[in-house]
Design a protein around this nucleic acid. Sequence first.
DNA 1: CTGAAAGCGCTTACAG
DNA 2: CTGAAAGCGCTTACAG
Lengths: 336, 336
Amino acid sequence: MVTIGDVAKAAGVSRSTVSYALSGKRPISPEVRDKIDSVIRSLNFTPNAGARALATSQTHVIALLAQFYADEFAPAMMQYILGVTDRARDLGYDTLLVTEPDGVAALRRISNSRMVDGFVLLNVAEHDSRLEVLRKAGQPGALVGLPGDPRGLDVFDLDFEATGALMVDHLHSLGHREIILVSQPQHVVERGGAYVWRLADAARARAEELGIRLHAHHSASSQPEVGTDLARLLETHPDATGLLLNNEAAAAALPSVLSARSLRVPEDLSVIGRYSDDFARTFSLPYSSVDSAAAELGRRAVEQLVAHIQGEADARVVELTPPKILDRGSTAAPPA
Amino acid sequence: MVTIGDVAKAAGVSRSTVSYALSGKRPISPEVRDKIDSVIRSLNFTPNAGARALATSQTHVIALLAQFYADEFAPAMMQYILGVTDRARDLGYDTLLVTEPDGVAALRRISNSRMVDGFVLLNVAEHDSRLEVLRKAGQPGALVGLPGDPRGLDVFDLDFEATGALMVDHLHSLGHREIILVSQPQHVVERGGAYVWRLADAARARAEELGIRLHAHHSASSQPEVGTDLARLLETHPDATGLLLNNEAAAAALPSVLSARSLRVPEDLSVIGRYSDDFARTFSLPYSSVDSAAAELGRRAVEQLVAHIQGEADARVVELTPPKILDRGSTAAPPA
DNA sequence: CTGAAAGCGCTTACAG
DNA sequence: CTGAAAGCGCTTACAG
């Protein structure tokens, strides 16, 4: 392995001079700098990351803690992850992807061993046991997902309350007066998936305000149950003219359910989902939707985290992204 | 930060004794060991990873190089990644997820800086420019995806040739004599996606052997083009009774194409796909398929890589997983 | 503008 | 069974 000592020797200077040439932290004469640069290139020298971390207490690595539940929609996670890793690299950081089931233990282990300069947590729950560990950790943290108590941490999430209200507003303004909301399964709520009830509660409140009927239900998040659930809901509420989906699997299952019942969108039924644009494109979902902005949330979390690591962040921040409807033509006035 | 020196002082022993107690590399008297253990717990000591890496030249981190193409099926990647990260952790390794577009530069940078003990490469192409860099790197590497020249590297992939033959065999044995194969887009092949032609060539060869007609086509991998492509193929080959899919997006788009044409599976058309079981479940794809075994391939790659890192691997290995059809009842005898 | 030296927190021969 | 010391490859005050 080629070390800074090898470079120094070959360039005929001291190790500290090479180090300063690398970091630019003090002036180097042009000749010396050129000599060092050429030696570095010819020897193909790259500083040893471990040694540098030991000397500076900076690893230039962030940890990304992702939790996967067997019953949740794994592919959606990819967009968050890419947002994080891509932005991190742009800012000069590599990303340690941590997927072990015991997030608390992982956080402790990685924090204590000083492998990283900071943490990004995905899939944050209402009462997330990782947060108290994170608050005591020596490194800053940013969350994707709004917990009950965000104190001391940077938080990024879609504004699910505004999303619920917006969906209802949209259908109401088209003339709908009875609509169905399909949420994630009950057990997602029980696990602390606050976005489920945040959207549902806001939708319910807005519906009441506007004087329209909203039937809020949970459905399964995998086949074949989700298909059955959807069919049953349509049957139970034959007068509903609008459908709101806060459940990716339900969105994926809907086309076949509707075609089996010969229901056309938007002629017979207006539909709005809440999922990522990428998801919609991949699975050819023809429904207008509120974009979950996964990659963007991941990017923002990293930016804020890095600002904190580098001491440039003034204060802690809770940033809720306003919902936007991507119009795919799946809503219209209700059938006469 | 609490260091090994703090532990030593509190336990009244030398730093080396604490280190040996940690590693178990030499005998420690029971009393001393107990004392050290209790101090470690009370001080919540974890060795500094950078310092340890510097001293041992072992980071206990592996790099996972994943390439994402805008036109490819990103969600499918998740299963490979989880297979890698989960198995790595079981074996005592953390995973650096590297997604930057220039894989060659990333590999060089990470290898030279000694951040990791080894590499797993995903999405390996027929002529993959990362491979020559990897062969010269100081760390071992394992590939998911069979390149043209696998020398010096461990390779894990689905046996796509056997897959092509198996799919054709299966339909032939049910009585089909004219079938369509839908592959990934042409540009995936051009990028070096050898699995596309490996499956197609083997399917073609087997079809010829058996004396049945095989229409092999590429189709788009996103909507709405893929839907149009499928509809056109069915139109062009009205006598085909079987459909083979080596294109996830086509599989996802097929249900609505078929329902628009009132074609029933398997009564009117037999269908076999090639994708992960997870993908099938999430998107309620009702077609029998050859499982792409993503997580398993990721796991095997890590196991072999770690064996090499730890000097336990005898030789380099090319492991092609035999295809298995998951029967979802989408194939039957052709219509009379 | 440059160099010699201390120090980061570990591990591991060497010595007893 | 245990300790004192060297060394891993960097960075950065300190000194000139």
